[in-house]
C-alpha cells in the first residue's frame, strides 16, 4: 500500500501542492485527474522521489521515503516501473536494448535469460518483430507499449504512468488503457495513472482523485464521478459536449 499524507511542494515562491493525502491499494488502478497546472505531474514525481516534498510523508508498504538515504531510495525505485508521457525511450538504443537495460543493470541474468524476458514482455504488450528497431522507427502507440514493456520487465510492485495515452488516437488510447488495467490485475500491482483524458476515466477508473490548484478536491470512482455535485469536478468533467451528453443519458437512467 502507498500512503501519502499531507504533502506540500513549492518551486521558488509558487506553492504547487498544498497538502495532498491519498492511499493506493494493491491491485487497484488509480487515476489522478485534473486540468493542466493542477499539480498532477508534481504529485507523481513526488511519489517517484524525483521531487522531494517540502512537508508531509510518503510510505511504500510501511517504508517512509522522507527518511530514506539516496541509496535506499534507489533500492526502492527498483520496485517501481514508470511510463513517461513522452515514452522516454533511449533513442540511441534498439527496442531490445531499451527493455534489457534494467535487467542488465540490476540482475545477473545470462544473455539468453534476458532475451527471453525481453521477448516475454514485448509479447505481453502485443508487439512483435520490433527487437532490432529504434524508437524513432515506431509509431507513438508502439513507443508507449515499449515504454510499458520496459516498465514491467523487472516485475515492479508499483507502476506509475504519466498521461500514457496523450497524443494517441482514441482507439490506440483505449488499447493502452486496457493493457495497463490487464497488467495491474494480472500482477496485482499498485498502478497510479496521471491523466486528463475522460475516456480513461470511464475505461479504467477504479479509483479517481481529482486535483485542482494543488489540492485534492474529490475522490471517487468512474461510477460516482458522473453523479457528484462537486462543482470543481463537474466543471472539469463536463467541459466537453460529449460528456454533457453522457450526463443527460445518466440523468435519464
Amino acid at each position: 500500500m502507498i500512503e501519502v499524507s499531507n504533502i506540500h511542494k513549492s518551486f521558488n515562491d509558487q506553492l504547487v501542492l498544498k497538502g495532498v493525502s491519498a492511499t493506493f491499494k494493491k491491485g487497484d488502478t488509480s487515476l489522478i485527474i485534473g486540468s493542466s497546472g493542477s499539480g498532477k505531474t508534481v504529485f507523481l514525481k513526488c511519489l517517484l522521489g524525483l521531487f522531494e516534498p517540502d512537508q508531509g510523508d510518503i510510505s511504500y508498504d510501511g517504508r517512509h521515503v522522507i527518511k530514506m538515504s539516496t541509496k535506499e531510495k534507489r533500492e526502492l525505485r527498483k520496485e517501481m516501473g514508470m511510463v513517461f508521457q513522452s515514452g522516454a525511450l533511449f533513442d540511441s538504443e534498439t527496442i531490445e536494448d531499451n527493455i534489457r537495460f534494467p535487467l542488465k543493470m540490476f540482475t545477473n541474468q545470462s544473455e539468453e535469460e534476458m532475451l527471453d524476458r525481453v521477448n516475454f514482455v514485448l509479447n505481453r504488450v502485443h508487439l512483435e518483430n520490433v527487437n532490432k528497431k529504434f524508437p524513432a522507427e515506431l509509431s507513438g502507440g508502439m513507443q508507449k507499449r515499449v515504454a510499458i514493456a520496459r516498465a514491467i520487465v523487472m516485475n515492479p510492485k508499483y507502476l506509475f504512468c504519466d498521461e500514457p495515452n496523450s497524443g494517441l488516437d482514441p482507439r490506440t488510447a483505449i488499447i493502452i488503457d486496457n493493457l495497463i488495467q490487464e497488467i495491474t490485475d494480472e500482477y496485482q500491482i499498485i498502478t497510479i495513472i496521471n491523466t486528463h483524458d475522460m475516456n480513461s476515466v470511464m475505461e479504467i477508473g477504479e479509483k479517481i482523485i481529482f486535483l485542482k490548484d494543488g489540492l485534492k478536491k474529490w475522490e471517487g470512482t468512474s461510477q460516482t464521478i458522473f453523479k457528484t455535485d462537486n462543482e470543481d469536478v463537474t466543471e472539469f468533467v463536463y467541459s466537453s459536449d460529449l460528456f454533457k451528453k453522457v450526463r443527460e443519458v445518466y440523468n435519464k437512467d
Binding site: K45, F84, F106
Partner: peptide, 14 residues
C-alpha cells in the same frame, strides 16, 4: 528534456 534521465533515475540508476 525528453525525460530519459528521469527514466534512469526511476529505475534506481545513479
Amino acid at each position: 528534456v525528453t525525460e530519459q534521465i528521469d527514466a534512469l533515475e526511476v529505475m534506481g540508476v545513479n
